[in-house]
Simulated assay, not measured.
Amino acid sequence: MTTALASGGREQFGWGQDRHLAADLFDAINQNTRATGQWEKGKSPKIPAYPRPQAKTAAEETPARPRSVAEIYQHFQRR
C-alpha cells in the first residue's frame, strides 16, 4: 500500500512491474493486429487500450507554499 500511495494513489494498488508489462503487451498485440489485418474498406476497427489507473496531473501534485520560520514560530506560539 505504501508503494501504491507513493506511486500516485490508492488506484495504483496491485500495479507492479508485471501488471504494467502485461498491459503494454496487450496493447502491442492489439496495435500489431490493427496494422497487419485484412479489413473491409481498408479501415481497421478501434480496439480500446487496456484500462490503467490514471496518473495525477501536475496541478494535483503541486505542493503548498512552504512556510517561513516566522510562520512556524507563530503556529507554535498559539498554544
Rank of each mutant, 00 (worst) to 15 (best):
M1G: 10
M1T: 14
M1Q: 13
M1K: 15
T2M: 05
T2C: 09
T3K: 13
T3P: 03
T3Y: 09
A4Q: 01
A4S: 14
A4N: 07
A6E: 12
S7P: 01
S7R: 15
S7D: 15
G8I: 03
G8T: 06
G8W: 04
G8E: 08
G9T: 09
G9P: 04
R10F: 10
R10Y: 08
R10E: 09
E11F: 04
E11K: 09
Q12R: 14
F13G: 02
G14I: 05
G14A: 01
W15T: 03
W15C: 04
W15L: 04
G16T: 04
G16N: 12
G16V: 07
D18H: 02
R19W: 08
H20R: 15
H20Q: 08
L21T: 08
A22E: 07
A22L: 10
A23F: 00
A23M: 01
D24G: 12
L25H: 09
F26M: 03
F26V: 00
F26R: 09
F26T: 06
F26A: 06
D27K: 01
D27R: 02
A28P: 00
A28Y: 03
A28W: 01
N30Y: 07
N30R: 05
N30F: 07
N32L: 13
N32K: 08
T33N: 09
T33C: 12
R34N: 02
R34D: 05
R34F: 05
A35I: 01
A35F: 12
A35N: 13
T36P: 05
T36Y: 13
G37Y: 02
G37K: 07
G37W: 08
G37I: 05
G37H: 07
Q38C: 12
E40A: 14
E40F: 14
K41F: 10
K41Y: 08
G42D: 11
K43H: 06
S44Y: 01
S44G: 06
P45T: 03
P45C: 10
P45L: 04
K46M: 10
I47L: 15
I47V: 15
P48T: 03
P48S: 04
A49D: 10
Y50G: 01
Y50I: 00
Y50C: 11
R52F: 00
R52I: 02
P53N: 04
P53G: 01
P53H: 02
Q54E: 13
A58Y: 00
A58M: 09
A59F: 01
E61M: 15
E61V: 09
E61S: 07
T62Q: 15
T62G: 00
T62V: 03
P63K: 09
P63D: 08
A64L: 13
A64T: 12
R65H: 02
P66Q: 11
P66C: 05
R67C: 05
S68M: 05
S68Y: 00
V69T: 14
V69M: 11
E71W: 10
E71Q: 14
I72S: 08
Q74V: 05
H75T: 12
F76R: 14
F76W: 15
F76M: 11
F76G: 03
Q77G: 05
Q77V: 04
R78M: 13
R78V: 11
R78G: 04
R79C: 11
R79L: 08
R79N: 05
R79F: 11
R79Q: 09
